[in-house]
Lab assay of single mutants.
Amino acid sequence: MIVFVRFNSSHGFPVEVDSDTSIFQLKEVVAKRQGVPADQLRVIFAGKELRNDWTVQNCDLDQQSIVHIVQRPWRKGQEMNATGGDDPRNAAGGCEREPQSLTRVDLSSSVLPGDSVGLAVILHTDSRKDSPPAGSPAGRSIYNSFYVYCKGPCQRVQPGKLRVQCSTCRQATLTLTQGPSCWDDVLIPNRMSGECQSPHCPGTSAEFFFKCGAHPTSDKETSVALHLIATNSRNITCITCTDVRSPVLVFQCNSRHVICLDCFHLYCVTRLNDRQFVHDPQLGYSLPCVAGCPNSLIKELHHFRILGEEQYNRYQQYGAEECVLQMGGVLCPRPGCGAGLLPEPDQRKVTCEGGNGLGCGFAFCRECKEAYHEGECSAVFEASGTTTQAYRVDERAAEQARWEAASKETIKKTTKPCPRCHVPVEKNGGCMHMKCPQPQCRLEWCWNCGCEWNRVCMGDHWFDV
């Protein structure tokens, strides 16, 4: 396979590697080409510095992935760790964990309700045991953590790749202090920090972006993250068709209702045909949960890209028209025109101005929308079919299609509260000796007794199943 190397943020060049090629071997190839010592090179990928003893497969490097290699003399205490030698983080029983690669970060837990604080980093599902597709590297999971809308060759929703760059020099040479644990960490600028490894760059702020994971991409090709779309790892039924499908869209209502993408497309087109989208002054033209839940309008309007190009163009047109109407304007009634106009409040005669090729020149009556006339309008008909009709959803289907309910059931079956801080902690095999993952707590306690870890627990039921 081919990976592209950008040395000291210059133009990239291809390097041929195998899945079992080590990072140090990659350094040696680059060092020979650039005429520099291999031990002064640092390989940066997806916000993480890659260790010498890791392989291309370990690092989730795919065909035509772009890695950054910078030349920086080692500072005291760094060289041993980078070589894969006596790194205290690798000691058996050590409590410190390697910062998780962005290629394996899962933010789907952050669609849980606000009262489930902490689960994004504490609760991990076991539903990723799908067998890898044919042709994928051994052991590589097909679980997708992110979804994007690819405006490039795909023109559809695709699995996405999370990447990070330095907000100062805009190069992907920043190593994160810690990985993101929720969508806010990724979507809110300057929320996460790190250290830029580019020479002479003092940058410390992280800037995240997404790429389409279905095809090789260049540095400049980015895609918009659709953070309401998630892999259906909890096997929730769709609120409309009641099938279990994946991926799904999880509405931001209190129940976190789930809808499959085909039904979401149908829901949007139906509402669009009836012009029953909601115009929100802050958000724009949007839709609420299909069950009509309060405070559930979709905030990231790129989710409506699921409509496809033709329907999305209609959505944008109707949204612009609705904006004009909300501002007190009118639409030209001549067939084939429909231009938005903003006449004076007491102006009865409205002319669709033909300047700049935008208007048709038609003069019409503001009251009856017919060709302009003197005197009273002959008839004014009330528009028919403008009443909002509820999208029919079966109550039982709505009850079963809740992301929140599956989460709470998982928590109930696989977790116990920490005796000190009461945060839910998952036990997935292993011994009875637990350690609270909350940095402010870190209590060592017994899963069996529910009390602080002691010699009695150690001698009596340390390794009970």
Rank of each mutant, 00 (worst) to 15 (best):
R245Q: 07
D460R: 06
M192E: 02
Q347Y: 07
T175W: 07
E374M: 06
V244A: 06
V393A: 07
E322V: 05
C377Q: 02
F364M: 05
I69S: 00
R75C: 09
F13E: 04
T173K: 08
H124Y: 05
E452D: 15
A383W: 09
G160L: 00
D274N: 05
N235A: 09
H433E: 05
T270D: 03
S223A: 15
V269I: 08
C241G: 01
T388A: 13
S141M: 10
A120S: 14
Q440M: 12
G85E: 12
V290A: 12
A363R: 09
E98F: 09
S218Y: 08
I66M: 06
R104N: 13
K27D: 01
L26A: 00
H302N: 15
F251C: 01
E310T: 08
C212G: 01
C166A: 01
R72Y: 14
C418T: 01
C268L: 04
F251T: 02
H303C: 05
V3W: 02
I69K: 00
K32L: 15
K369H: 08
P335A: 10
M80L: 14
V393H: 06
C241E: 00
P132A: 12
P288E: 08
F7W: 05
T270I: 09
S246C: 05
L26V: 04
T240D: 04
C268A: 14
E452P: 15
I236F: 03
A91M: 10
D60W: 03
C436S: 00
C212E: 01
G292E: 07
A172Y: 08
R396A: 11
A92D: 12
C446Q: 01
P202W: 07
G385Y: 07
S407R: 11
G319P: 10
G213I: 06
I66K: 02
P180I: 02
H265A: 08
P73N: 09
G429P: 07
I298G: 00
V30A: 04
D20Y: 05
G459F: 15
T83L: 14
V36H: 02
F208D: 00
G459P: 02
G375N: 12
D185F: 00
K48C: 04
E322F: 03
P99C: 10
L261N: 02
E221W: 06
V423H: 14
G319W: 05
C332Q: 03
A214F: 06
E195Q: 12
K48N: 04
T177E: 14
I69E: 00
